[in-house]
């Protein structure tokens, strides 16, 4: 009989040895238990719809606990897009330290409740717990959390049987490999999406479409222009996630999270944060449009300037980028 809980460890795309070690440690630490099985799969973002990993996950209809180097919202809705759906479980292993569940929309009591796509959809009752590997600094804490989830979902084996099976190594983790290449596309958080159609109106590349019940969906993810997160900025509900975007707000973080590493973007030429989201979005989209037009007629080598994008101020040559960075640090909306 298959265990009713599957623990998934999704590897990151990076060569960072500390990340690889953490994946390995967690898989090892959680293996050898009778209460759950452990699957190691490639980076969730890069899996194609026909990936063996996804087929294996679709076969598991019990609860899932998914560890990945992605924000939990991003991981959850990537899986959902691949028809691996369930109720979102709340994990105690979170990146931020204030103890609140970080993924909830700030609720405004003045506001009329809005109907979200998730409210009109049937979602299986099984739970999916997505856990950010960046929050898993200790393998012991991870084991504790998985045991806690086991209890929470009511599938708990007694403590003694857990202890008895410890260390016998009878169920080593299983690794599923897929040929992956880096992918770039949006996923929709249907707990936020109101089906307003702003994204389908805005995107010029045919990424979005409608399903048979006229609900928005990411129909052609590979039409998306690499690096362009413009539709995410126009979404009034912040429901569009680009799992691979550098900015936490776009990559699926929900509250302020400070990276553990220094951000040197300004050093490498990041423009000042002086533009409104909508302007940035139009500029990004128009750059992509110009780039694709340019590729089809390769005679011209210059980018036509966008009609509605603001001209970047180039008169500040003499001022110091890094001084500006210091001033800008206060305004970072990370």
């Amino acid at each position: 009989m298959k265990p009713e809980i599957t623990v998934v460890v999704a590897q990151g795309p990076s060569h960072d040895p500390t990340k690889r070690t953490r994946e390995q440690e967690i898989a090892d630490r959680l293996s050898g238990r009778g209460d759950w099985e452990v699957l190691v799969v490639p980076h969730l973002n890069d899996l194609r719809p026909d990936a063996a990993s996804l087929a294996a996950l679709r076969q598991r209809t019990g609860h899932l606990i998914v560890f990945s180097w992605l924000y939990p919202r991003a991981a959850h809705w990537i899986l959902d897009r691949h028809r691996i759906s369930g109720q979102r479980g709340t994990t105690r292993l979170q990146l931020d330290t204030d103890g609140k569940p970080s993924d909830e929309m700030p609720s405004d009591p003045q506001q009329e409740p809005v109907e979200r796509v998730i409210d009109i959809r049937t979602v299986p009752t099984r739970a999916i717990y997505c856990i950010d590997l960046r929050a898993c600094t200790s393998a012991d804490a991870v084991l504790q959390e998985v045991e806690r989830i086991l209890t929470e979902t009511g599938k708990s084996a007694s403590r003694s049987s857990v202890a008895a099976s410890e260390g016998n190594g009878s169920r080593p983790w299983r690794s599923i490999t897929d040929d992956t290449q880096r992918r770039w596309y949006p996923v929709i958080d249907f707990a936020r999406c109101t089906n307003c159609m702003e994204c389908i109106d805005f995107c010029l590349f045919g990424v979005y479409g409608l399903d048979e019940s006229d609900t928005i969906l990411v129909e052609q993810p590979d039409n998306c222009r690499k690096g362009c997160p413009a539709c995410s900025r126009v979404c009034p509900e912040n429901a569009i996630i680009f799992p691979q975007h550098k900015s936490p707000a776009i990559a699926g973080a929900s509250s302020s999270i400070d990276g553990l590493k220094v951000d040197l973007s300004q050093l490498f030429g990041k423009p000042e944060p002086d533009q409104h989201a909508k302007q940035i979005a139009q500029q990004e989209r128009d750059q992509q449009l110009a780039a694709s037009a340019n590729q089809s007629s390769s005679s011209s080598s210059t980018v036509p300037p966008s009609q509605d994008a603001p001209r970047r101020d180039t008169s500040d040559d003499t001022s110091d980028d890094l001084d500006k960075l210091i001033n800008a640090l206060d305004q970072f909306d990370l």
């Binding site: 990076s14 960072d16 550098k246 990276g259 590493k261 220094v262 951000d263 040197l264 973007s265 050093l267 490498f268 030429g269 990041k270 423009p271």
Partner: peptide
């Protein structure tokens, strides 16, 4: 991404 930092990269 490196040991010490993360950064976006821009056209020089």
């Amino acid at each position: 991404e490196s040991k010490k930092a993360e950064a976006s990269l821009y056209a020089p």
